[in-house]
Simulated scan of single mutants.
Amino acid sequence: MTLVKFNPNGNVKKNDLMNGFDGVFDSIFNDTFFSDRMMARVPAVNISESKDHYYVELAAPGLKKNDFKLSLERNLLNISVERNSENNAQERNYNKREFSYNSFVRSFTLPEAADENGIEAKYVDGMLCVNIVKREEAKIQGGN
């Protein structure tokens, strides 16, 4: 159902007709039916750094540690998940479902200061935390 704005005074001006059409189009394209399908289905990420490390925090609730695959090709860190949806006997009928990551890939270009041999990851409470150690040269330069 689409609600169309109208002029309560009953005065119809030339531009009011166009505003009515604009309102219809705005309501169609701003409807949750369309916005849910256009919304990116990848988890949000925070990236930060300290003197010795870079940190990537990826919010992905409902997954398991084994669902994640991390790969490093040259200086490109890829974080991916490939899951098959399982049919449970007690399946729910969702009215709205926003966190459903069956598959995604997030890629990050590592800076030159990153030590590709010093990457660790852990998954705790729906958050994948990737710690990337900085090279010794970068630590020394950063301290000056």
Rank of each mutant, 00 (worst) to 15 (best):
F68I: 03
N93A: 12
E82A: 13
S80I: 04
A89R: 07
S71D: 06
L76F: 05
R74V: 10
S80H: 00
G62I: 02
R83H: 01
R97V: 14
N88C: 12
L76P: 01
L70S: 06
N87Y: 08
R83I: 05
R97S: 14
N87K: 13
K96Q: 13
E82W: 08
K69V: 02
E91A: 10
E73H: 01
E98C: 07
F68P: 04
L77P: 01
N93Y: 09
K96C: 07
G62N: 06
S85Q: 10
N88P: 06
N88R: 13
R92S: 14
Y94R: 04
I79Y: 04
R74L: 06
R92A: 15
K64Y: 08
Y94H: 11
E98F: 10
A89W: 11
L76Y: 02
K64T: 08
S85T: 12
E86W: 03
L63H: 02
K65R: 10
S80N: 00
L72C: 03
N95D: 13
N84A: 07
K96S: 14
S85P: 04
N95P: 01
K64V: 05
L72E: 04
Q90V: 11
A89Y: 09
F68R: 00
N93C: 10
S85A: 08
F99K: 09
R74E: 12
N75G: 01
N88M: 13
N78R: 10
K96V: 09
R92W: 14
R83L: 05
N88H: 15
R97I: 13
E82K: 10
S71Q: 05
R74P: 02
I79N: 04
L63E: 03
R97D: 14
F99N: 09
F99V: 08
F68G: 00
K64N: 11
E73Q: 03
L77I: 07
N95C: 13
D67I: 00
G62D: 03
S71N: 07
E86Q: 08
N93H: 13
K64P: 06
S85D: 07
Q90M: 15
L76S: 11
N87A: 11
R92E: 14
E91D: 12
K64D: 10
K64E: 09
N88L: 15
E86G: 06
L72Q: 06
L77E: 08
S71Y: 04
E86R: 05
R74Y: 03
N78K: 10
S85L: 13
K69P: 02
E98Y: 10
Y94K: 06
N75M: 07
I79T: 02
I79G: 00
F99E: 08
R83G: 05
N87H: 09
L77Y: 00
E73N: 07
N66I: 05
K69F: 03
N78W: 01
R74S: 12
L76V: 12
L76G: 04
R92L: 15
R74K: 15
N78P: 00
K65G: 07
S71L: 02
R74I: 09
S85R: 12
N84W: 08
N75K: 06
A89Q: 11
R97E: 13
V81T: 02
N88I: 15
N93P: 01
K69C: 04
R83C: 00
N95Q: 15
S71E: 01
R83P: 00
